[in-house]
Design a protein around this nucleic acid. Structure first.
Lengths: 137, 137
DNA sequence: ATAAACCTTGGAGTACACCCTAAGGTCAAG
DNA sequence: CTTGACCTTAGGGTGTACTCCAAGGTTTAT
């Protein structure tokens, strides 16, 4: 699949794909004789992985590290690969925990608000927000 | 509290604090006669809120929107304020769901890896990663 | 009273993650 | 066989979120 079609299917720009290639995130599996990029199904899977990771807040360099799990298979032992996977998993767990605190804060705010048509000036949601950090520690 | 001490307590730079002020995220509650910024306990709470939000992946403009819940109290009805809070909460919930899928993927990877000292070449963790997107749909 | 450690504004520089344009080569349809 | 839709590289521009001066004023300790 050429870059244009590949980009369309994944909802990104061709510029983004060239940028990712330049920065070592996704190299198309082959090139035509005149140099056109050709993307395979495996490339599609990898790009989906990259986009999902980006969506949950990983930076491109973090994603590159995640991909190292795959690319370093000859240089590293199972033990190292597993350790890295678990370390990344812990990072994800920490982010989930923080987001959950945030979710609880916003739930608390919503619960405390009457939701009526009057101006929000006297609504407890506001004073609650002021203490949001205290409430969620 | 002057900017230097405030920055130290929160683990940010004074430049960051001035940047946030310029972009409407945190205006110190007062200034000295010669113009020194003074930060209050309320400012501390707000800054903690900002940092927590940043930590879980909100951009500064998203955080500014979250803070509008507080600042728009006179212009908006309880209903509007509550709707906005719930909308932001849903956004957080979606992000948690995605991260959870990610967590599960990484768990699966770790479970499938023997973790031994041999090269990872033959470890199932690698082929699993190649299918990670399929596995977590 | 003067040095060190603070503070001010303004503006320039940086890293990340794109996005756009130029100048040109390739390919399929009519 | 040419038009239009593709592709190439190189390089410049943009928005976000800082980060780092420079030039000067203030405060505190000795």
């Amino acid at each position: 699949m050429k870059i244009g079609e590949f980009a369309r299917q994944l909802g990104v720009s061709t510029d983004t794909l060239r940028y990712y290639e330049k920065h070592g995130l996704l190299t198309p599996s082959s090139r035509s004789e005149v140099g056109y990029r050709f993307y395979s199904d495996a490339d599609y899977k990898q790009m989906s992985f990259i986009l999902r990771a980006k969506n949950v807040g990983f930076s491109l360099s973090e994603i590159k590290e995640l991909l190292q799990i795959k690319f370093h298979k000859n240089q590293h032992s199972c033990h190292e690969v597993k350790a890295m996977t678990l370390q990344k998993r812990d990072l994800v767990a920490a982010r989930i925990a923080e987001l959950t605190r945030f979710y609880d804060s916003l739930s608390l705010l919503a619960d405390k608000c009457c939701g009526g048509e009057e101006p929000a000036e006297n609504c407890s949601i506001l004073t609650t927000l002021e203490d949001i950090d205290g409430l969620t520690q």
